[in-house]
Nucleic acid binder design. Structure first.
Lengths: 177, 177
DNA sequence: TGCTAATGAGATGTAAAAAG
DNA sequence: CTTTTTACATCTCATTAGCA
């Protein structure tokens, strides 16, 4: 199966990302394709970062393929993801990128995983995971007053409110200190 | 709103897919006709970090891309910005530059942020901020008698009046010594 | 087939650009 | 500078489709 996303991990390349706090970089780029006038139905999928080594020829082939690419997330990766999720189900962009690097998946893949997991939890279809995991649903009990985001630790909720609901929180009299 | 015939709809809503992920975005198609060359001085933005993964091909494409570049301001940077804003919502050019250096963003980006934030505050969408911050909306109550600038501390207002409204202040009998 | 990764539409917030 | 508009990033929710 050629579609297998090689979840391997040799992506240690690109270590950058000055996590060195404070001078955080603005992250430029990020644009998305402006698709061609020709409809081109299923567009390119998010590829894991390390796939950047693919030749343009290969990428072109991907274009032609109209099959949706499904990433297979390994149990080891899930373990990490759930652990991070339990601390903060709504990570900021920077944190998300760190997690992506840690598990070796494209940022977009991790982002989608978090979105789907939040949705799943909301619907009550949450599932504690794999072997040895101590994570369990009911414990993620802090819900953001302004959206449905859930958090396990207050500090994470605070950070979330500060970055996403600043105005409302202020108006409502929350003390985010 | 009939504005720019050119850039306008290139990517207006249609299939939209904004979501996807970028970063490795082929952007194959398309001619990309001429179109105005965005001025964007060469390295307005920090190319620090992350860019390492960009290939020369991608960089080249950037050159002919006419898309708008949106900076992502991190929560840490916002924290600093709002703190400064609380002291003086209308910083002079020099101060603005210092702030820009402190947060690691281009002066222009910070300037725009201040403009947008002042506008937001006027519209009542203001937010005060995070932990440790003593700033809170209603407290930004010193308004310049000659323009709409707002300040939290009198010294900042005075400095502002000295640099921008010297004549009027003099005439009006203010003692700015 | 069930679980879930990926998509897409609609909504929201806001950085950047345009207009005044 | 301000005000208004554009466009991009991200979220939710509903749905589609890939794989064990």
């Amino acid at each position: 199966n050629p579609t297998h996303p090689m979840i391997s991990h040799l992506n240690s390349l690109q270590i950058q990302n000055t996590l060195s706090d404070h001078s955080s970089n603005p992250l430029t780029s990020l644009s998305q394709s402006s698709l061609s006038p020709i409809k081109q139905s299923s567009k390119l999928l998010s590829e894991t970062s390390f796939e950047s080594q693919r030749s343009s020829r290969e990428i072109e082939e991907d274009h032609r393929r109209d099959k949706r690419q499904r990433t297979t997330i390994t149990p080891e990766q899930l373990e990490v993801l759930y652990q991070r999720y339990s601390m903060d189900s709504n990570p900021t962009r920077g944190v998300l990128e760190g997690i992506a690097r840690e598990v070796g998946l494209a940022r977009r893949v991790v982002q989608v995983w978090f979105q789907n997991t939040r949705a799943r939890e909301r619907k009550g279809q949450f599932r504690s995971m794999g072997p040895g995991s101590s994570f369990s649903l009911g414990l993620n009990h802090l819900r953001c007053p302004f959206c449905r985001a859930l958090f396990k630790v207050k500090s994470a909720l605070d950070a979330h409110m500060r970055s996403r609901h600043w105005a409302e929180a202020e108006r409502a009299g929350y003390n985010l200190s």
